[in-house]
Structure formats: C-alpha cells, structure tokens
Amino acid sequence: MEKRRILFVDDESAVLKALETMLEPMRELWSMEFVSDPRRALEQLARGAFDVVVSDTSMPVMDGSEFLAEVMLRHPQVVRIILARQTDRDRTLDALHVSHQFLAKPCDASTLRATVSRALALRKFLDGDTPLKALVSRLDSLPSMPALYRELVDALQDVDINFSEVARIIEQDPAMAAKILQLVNSAYFSLSRHVSDLDTALMLLGLDTIKSLVLSVQVFSQFEEETLRTLSVERLWRHSVRTGALARALAQAEKAPREMINDAFTAGLLHDTGKLILAANMPNIYAKVVHLCAEENLAPCEAERQLFGAAHAETGAYLLGLWGLPETIVEAVAYHHHPQDRETLDRSALTFVHVANALSQLPDAPAAILDTGYLGELELLDRLPAWAELSESVLA
C-alpha cells in the first residue's frame, strides 16, 4: 500500500521533534517530513505531491495563514490543517479562509492521528487530482441566500440580539450552518463530543466570535444575483430546510437518541451541499443537468457524474468532511440517495435523511428514490404509512 505523505511546518524545532516522536508509530502508513521554514516547505511541495499539510499559525518569516494561502493557490488538492494556541483566537479566525481544520496547540497524538486519518479517508468520495477536487478544496465558504444573509447581518448589529434569534436565522441556511459547525467541531475547541445542534454550537462559540465571523472576517458569502436568476437556488434552499425539518420529526417519532435527532436535522439541512457547490461555482455546466436528464433519460446523479465526474452527494460529503463535520453527518450527506452503500447497516441519521429527502419530493419524484430494500433490512418498511402521514403535517 502506498504511503500517504504528510508535511509538518513549525518554526519551533522542539515542537517538530515532539511531533516526530509521538507520530513514530505512523511511519508504516505515512511518509512524514518536518520543516521549520515555510518557504522551504513550499519548495518541498513543489518537488513532490503531499496529501496533508499541518502548519503552525505564528511563524516569524511567514505566518500560518500566509503559508496556507500559498498552499491553497499552488496545491489546492492538499488538505490544510492549522495548529493554533487557544490564546491566539484572532489569528485562528483569520486562518478560516485558508484552513480546512483547526487543532489546538499543543495537540495530543491521538487527536492529531485521528484528524489526519479522517482527512485521508475522504478519498473514497473524491479521489485523484481532478479539477472538481481542486475546486472543492479551495472553498472557504458556501453561498447563502441574500435575504437570510442580510437578516443575519442586521440582527448581529442589534445590541439586544440573543442566541435563539441568531440560531433561527442560521438554521434556515445550509451554508451558514456548515461554516458554524466546521469551527465548533474543530479540535481547537477541545470538545469531548461532536456538536450538530446549532443552538449549542452558537453558545459554545459566543456572540462575540459570531459577530467577528460575520461582520469582520466575513466568513459567509452570498449567491450572485445572476446565479439566483438562472438556477432554481431558492427551490434547492427550500427543499433543504424542509428535508431537515422532516428528518428531525421522523427521528423524534422513532424515539431516537437526542444526538441522532440533532444529526438528522443538520444532515437533512446539509444533504444537498454538493448542489450548492456545483451551482455556485460552475453554474453554466450545472444548468445542463436538467437537459441531460431529459435528453438521455438519466437520474440527476448520473447526469452530474457525466458532467462533473462526481455527483452532488459525494461532492458535498467531501467538503463537509474536509471541514471536520461529524462523520455521522458526512455519511448521511454522502449516501442519502443510496443508503445501502454505507459500510455499516444500522439505524442512523442517514436513515431519516434518506426517507425525508424522498418524502419531501413525492409525488413529483419517482417512488424509486425511496430505497425500500434498505428500509426492509432495517425492519422499518411498515413505518412508511405513518411517516408519510407525518410528512404531510410537517411539510404543510
């Protein structure tokens, strides 16, 4: 098996030595290089391909944000992870535009190994150095609906704003939700559990950080007016919100654990993230999907694979995985059309997102979009009539 190549960059030789020592057990799987000068690290990258770069934030010659910006520009397919001290929050927020994930410095071996390993495992969604993978790896945000973006900006400028009002706005927008969850689920915050509930995420970040993200760092973006006019973006947004609400209601009806209920809502809200990526960044090609489906009688996912080399499900899952969102959410996004492709067959957030996605499109979509074989294996097929009835009230 070919070893994966990892590059560590830190100006403190003691830190590099500690990293090298604690990662020694990974030598059989990873080929690792440790460099103290970011300029030399760029030379290393130019000489040979690396899979992951882990960089410190504070370096005298070129800081972490500058270095990773160059990596993003020259080698966009490389996964970019930044190490930041808890006291250096401003630098960390500045690095949001160029980093996929954040780790607290000092970082323990298990957290570092797990973060890098998860990033490497994402190749199952988008493999090879393709233009689409490079595009997705460069993204630092997803576009939001302009009206919601303006509502959030106005709300955050109100001195009397509260968490619940901010959460109400953000949970209506897949792009904002994904970015908030990227930050709060990073190991930088040293949480012992993953967070998929937006109220909890916002409380953990704090209003000052959220205001900085939106008003100063400007981590959110908006759809271009031309894109809104030419593509059914509003319809896509409405479907995402409805799917999230229904997935949560289905999980609650089945008395799922609280964490699974939260995962179901968030994964439902984010399940079409890949469509946002394709529509915002390649609108002219994305507009051809509908025509190709009609002309060649293809399912939308197959048309996307012909046009882009991958469908929206794996495209969205790859980005959310890069951003470090919980694996339960990434898998639900990746397999929401084909749940039996998931390696483990059990009841999960994926189950409720798959059903919610199908029920929210009926009767307009073909009944085949609901995988009855999958539901049968989970012994849930007899729940369909009750779920269909529930969907009528939730989606009314």
Rank of each mutant, 00 (worst) to 15 (best):
E2I: 09
R5V: 05
I6M: 07
L16S: 10
L19G: 07
P25V: 13
E33S: 14
F34G: 07
D37S: 13
R39F: 09
L42A: 04
A49C: 02
M59A: 05
P60F: 07
D63C: 07
F67C: 03
V71A: 01
M72E: 07
L73D: 12
R74V: 01
H75S: 05
P76G: 04
P76D: 02
Q77C: 05
Q77H: 15
V79F: 15
R80P: 05
T87V: 15
D88A: 08
R89H: 07
D90V: 04
D94G: 09
D94H: 14
S99W: 04
H100D: 14
Q101W: 10
L103R: 06
L103H: 07
L103N: 04
K105T: 03
K105W: 04
D108E: 09
A109Q: 12
S117G: 11
A121N: 13
L126M: 07
L126V: 06
P131T: 06
S137V: 01
S137A: 11
L142C: 01
M145C: 13
P146Q: 10
A147I: 13
E151F: 00
D154V: 09
L156K: 02
I161K: 01
E165S: 06
A167L: 00
I169K: 03
I170P: 01
Q172G: 09
Q172F: 05
K179Y: 04
Q182T: 02
Q182N: 08
S186N: 03
S186R: 06
H194R: 12
S196R: 04
L198D: 06
L207C: 00
D208G: 00
L213D: 00
V217L: 03
F220G: 00
F223G: 00
T227N: 12
T227W: 03
V233D: 04
E234S: 13
L236T: 13
R238Q: 15
R242M: 15
G244R: 09
A245K: 15
L246I: 08
L246K: 07
A247Q: 11
P257V: 05
A267Q: 10
L269N: 11
H271D: 10
H271S: 14
D272R: 14
D272Q: 12
G274V: 08
A279R: 09
N284G: 12
A287R: 14
K288A: 10
V289E: 04
L292A: 07
A294I: 11
A294C: 08
L298E: 09
C301V: 13
E302G: 00
E302M: 08
A303M: 10
L307H: 08
A310V: 11
A310R: 12
T315I: 14
G316V: 05
Y318N: 01
T328P: 06
E331Y: 04
A332T: 07
V333M: 00
H337S: 09
H338F: 13
L345Y: 03
L345P: 02
L345K: 05
A349D: 06
V355Q: 09
N357K: 14
P363K: 13
L370M: 04
G373T: 12
G376S: 14
E377K: 15
L378A: 11
A388T: 12
S391M: 03
S391D: 01
